[in-house]
Computed example of a mutant assay.
Amino acid sequence: MPSVSKKGQAMPQSPIRKLVPFAENAKKKGAKIIHLNIGQPDIKTPQIALDAVKNNTLSVLEYSRTEGSESFREKVAGYYAKNAIHVAANDIIVTTGGSEALSFAMGSIADTDDEIIIPEPFYANYNGFATACGIKVVPVVSKIEDNFALPPIEDFEQLITPRTKAILICNPGNPTGYLYSKEEIQKLARIVKKHDLYLIADEVYREFTYDDREHYSILQEEGLDEHAIIIDSVSKRYSMCGARIGFLVSKNKELIATALKFGQARLSPPTYAQIASEAALETPQSYFDEVKTEYVARRNLLIAELEKIEGVKVARPQGAFYCIAELPIQDADDFAQWLLEDFRVNDETVMVAPAAGFYATDGLGKNQIRIAYVLDQDSLKRAVFILGEALKSYIG
């Protein structure tokens, strides 16, 4: 029988999606599942984006330009300007989701066996994209005791080798919800300039910052133009995950020209989704104000309820809509599967994402879970109650 590739064998499973078969089986048996496992917002997509697709007059659904339509990129540049990020349309490549932007970035900056340093825990698919590109992820540990703040810059410096090509961060963070400060970004800026590296920032949660804190982009930092690469997406910003529209943004002309060749190989980003996304850029600020108010209320409720459970330690998110909770158990993977297979409260259970899959260092995060607070407050409160009851039963 033919064998699959070593690269394919090395591809990690999604810690978010690998439990889906157990969830589907539970549903077939009549269980109601409250999903805390995936960052799919329940916030309504702006009507202006939906109407743009519904009311368009296209007679031929053509390929778009490889880098995305010019009018769309011009408007995206205008969006960035409103956020104190000054780029031109030709500094932007429209991609099929932020995922493709990450893949293009990694393929453009690194060769097989090159290294990228990433603070862990990190978005699990960074591992997948790196594996697909033949790149080695070098983790630097951030700790729940420090609320997952940037590790000491000396920890990064010790890991830099001749094969190191970049440092990659998510800001605000998935899965931690941590928001890097201006001072932390400046520390990273100094080290990438010192060692002539790229600094890649996944900034897809830019709008979602709390406690009067402001997002500071790597492209707001002076002197970083040749080093900075932004990964972005409309998915979470406008609750348009299914549109699959993202952006690769950099002022480094050679990097953009190289990434464009990867884009040409896949032809073009989806046309209808660009139409929807271009219209979404007209969404009023009031939309984001309301969404942020709702997420702050959800976060506050979630943290308060989790802290009532004996033995649970929880980090306080400052952005995005995720948090990491440390549970008084040994194996969160086993616990998450047990929740779906064996535990019910009035035919209800919860689905969580075991956090070990968000770490690259073996053994870390085994007793942690990631929770996405993308549900209404009543559902969140009910979910945490079930989680608390489940822990009593599981430990017992």
Rank of each mutant, 00 (worst) to 15 (best):
S3Q: 15
K6P: 01
S14Y: 00
I16G: 01
I33R: 09
D42E: 10
K44P: 04
T45E: 14
Q47K: 15
V60C: 04
Y63E: 08
A77E: 02
A77H: 04
A81C: 07
K82N: 08
A84L: 12
V94H: 03
V94N: 02
G98Y: 00
I109L: 06
T112D: 04
T112Y: 12
F122A: 11
G128A: 07
T131C: 09
G134D: 06
V138T: 11
I144R: 15
I153T: 03
I153F: 03
F156T: 00
E157V: 12
R163A: 13
K165I: 01
A166D: 09
C170D: 10
Y178N: 12
L179C: 05
Y180K: 06
S181W: 01
E183I: 05
E184M: 10
K187N: 10
A189V: 08
I191A: 08
K193T: 14
K193Q: 13
H195Y: 15
I200N: 05
A201L: 05
D202S: 09
Y205S: 14
F208Y: 07
T209D: 00
D211M: 12
E214C: 05
Q220H: 11
E221V: 14
E222M: 07
E222N: 12
A243S: 10
A243H: 06
F247K: 08
V249S: 03
A259V: 04
A259T: 05
Q264H: 13
L267K: 13
I275S: 06
S277V: 02
T283M: 08
E290D: 08
E290N: 04
T293F: 01
Y295Q: 07
A297P: 02
L302W: 01
L306Y: 08
K313D: 12
A315V: 13
P317K: 06
I324W: 04
E326D: 01
Q337C: 07
E341L: 09
F343R: 07
R344Y: 15
D347V: 00
G357F: 03
Y359G: 13
Y359K: 04
D362I: 06
V384D: 14
V384Q: 13
F385M: 15
L391D: 12
S393R: 10
S393W: 10
